[in-house]
Computed example of a mutant assay.
Amino acid sequence: MAERVALVTGAASGIGAAVVAELARRGWRVAGLDLRHSTDVEHGVSVDVADPTQVNAAIARIERELGQVEAAVCAAGHYAITPVADIPWTEWRRMLRVHLGGLLNVCRAVAPAMAERGRGAIVGVSSELAIGGGDGEAHYAAAKGAVIGLVRALAVELAPLGVRVNAVAPGPTDTPLLPPESPWRRPAYLQTLPAGRMSRPEEIALAAAYLVDEGTFCVGEIISPNAGAVI
């Protein structure tokens, strides 16, 4: 187990950083991709996950230096609240390029070798908003919904080859992605949740790590730790 290599995108903060820590605790050697450099990752590479050329080069370098990637968790992303009529087309496209394109770029880079070896695990990070929707979050919810569609399609395609593809769809999580003034942090909203609070990134990391390590019969599953926001 100590020699198994995992790749995490969005590794410098939030859910991605928590996944890095959890997989490292479990004995994985972890490589992280992020626009920002992270000192908490054994092998960090500065990459725009929306750029397939950068992703391919980074993963080739990681496999030369650490070994073959056997698990990938795609947590890179960004978030914004904007009424649908006010969303610039550039931001519509960027949401899709980062969330959907980032997942696709990683999958295209790692899945062929995983399939050749007959084993591997890929975990996308979607959102509870892809399931329940959200006011002023059409571009984010659409991109995260597309992640679910891609995960389920790839799960069907790759499961016969020994590669498991699944996703986590967190509810509001206490990370820097949600600014202090976010409506998801307001006490009035939190009181509507059965759990009464936001998730912690470490809790989402446990769900992702389960799909990597223990969830060997999970194929195309969407685990949504959302504090009861969507049941």
Score class of each variant (00 low, 15 high):
Glu91Asn: 11
Val20Lys: 03
Arg197Lys: 06
Gly124Asp: 09
Cys218Lys: 01
Asn56Met: 07
Ala130Pro: 04
Ala58Asn: 03
Asp51His: 04
Ala130Leu: 02
Gly132Gln: 09
Gly67Val: 01
Val212Glu: 02
Pro172His: 12
Ile131Glu: 09
Pro225Asp: 06
Glu128Ile: 13
Val49Leu: 14
Ile204Ala: 07
Ala71Val: 01
Gly134Phe: 01
Arg29Gln: 00
Leu193Gly: 06
Thr90Arg: 15
Ala195Glu: 09
Gly215Glu: 09
His78Arg: 10
Ala75Thr: 13
Ile81Met: 13
Val49Asn: 12
Gly145Gln: 04
Leu96Phe: 01
Pro83Tyr: 08
Arg186Ala: 15
Val165Ser: 11
Asp51Met: 06
Gly27Pro: 11
Ala130Gly: 05
Glu65Ile: 02
Tyr140Lys: 00
Gln54Asp: 11
Ile62Glu: 06
Ala11Asp: 01
Gly145Asn: 02
Ser182Tyr: 09
Val106Trp: 01
Ser224Val: 07
Ala21Ile: 08
Pro112Thr: 05
His43Leu: 05
Ala208Cys: 13
Val41Pro: 07
Val49Phe: 12
Ala141Arg: 00
Arg93Gln: 14
Asn56Arg: 15
Pro176Ser: 07
Glu221Gln: 12
Ala167Val: 12
Arg64Lys: 15
Gly220Asp: 09
Thr173Asp: 13
Pro112Glu: 07
Met198Trp: 11
Val69Glu: 03
